[in-house]
Design a protein around this nucleic acid. Sequence first.
DNA 1: TATCTTTATCGTAATATTGCAATAATAAAT
DNA 2: ATTTATTATTGCAATATTACGATAAAGATA
Lengths: 100, 100
Amino acid sequence: MFSVTQNKLAQAAKVLAHPARIAILDYISRQENCICNDLVDVIGLSQPTISQHLNEIKKIGLLKGTFEGKNLCYCINQERWEELQYSFNAFFSNINQNCC
Amino acid sequence: MFSVTQNKLAQAAKVLAHPARIAILDYISRQENCICNDLVDVIGLSQPTISQHLNEIKKIGLLKGTFEGKNLCYCINQERWEELQYSFNAFFSNINQNCC
DNA sequence: TATCTTTATCGTAATATTGCAATAATAAAT
DNA sequence: ATTTATTATTGCAATATTACGATAAAGATA
């Protein structure tokens, strides 16, 4: 019903559509290294809730690293990040100026 | 609980978090002049549904023009549009590169 | 092995979103 | 004044999201 581009952008926007996830991404993107276990304290939501939000962020590929057992250590997937930045920018750049 | 900036960005993202609203904005932004009455045919959702989506878009100030009676004629509010473009870009630009 | 720490999942209640038929409202056209 | 065209609102039903307590899982540590 909608184009692939439209669906993809909406899906990405959906992940950004909750302040907790913005805050999580803000925090991770400011860290020097991988992040592991302080999000619960930093954000102020329960651990299960943080886990759910992280999962949403993971699902669109915005995190990379290892997520298993003792090697759990992840950070922003920069390629995907830039891809989304480009997508949003492309969307916003497509505007007609001569109206109203 | 979250910062004003985080809440505002999440709120804007929420409006973009549905492909119908992306499609509506895509369409309006491609028009040469004000748009009034062809969205229902173009998008393919019922008129009440389109009206609801338009309302969401209006609420964050992305549309300008007149919305009353015979003078109904609106288009993208370019200032607000650019403001959001800037906000998203600022968010995406804030990323640490040395990790993983 | 037992315990501790950390993350994931389950179950569930509360809330929000989405879509549309029905209807109202508004103004233009006849 | 009626009809027509267009947009808004109401009233649901279906679905999705959100949050968190309880619990499980996995590995580290004693």
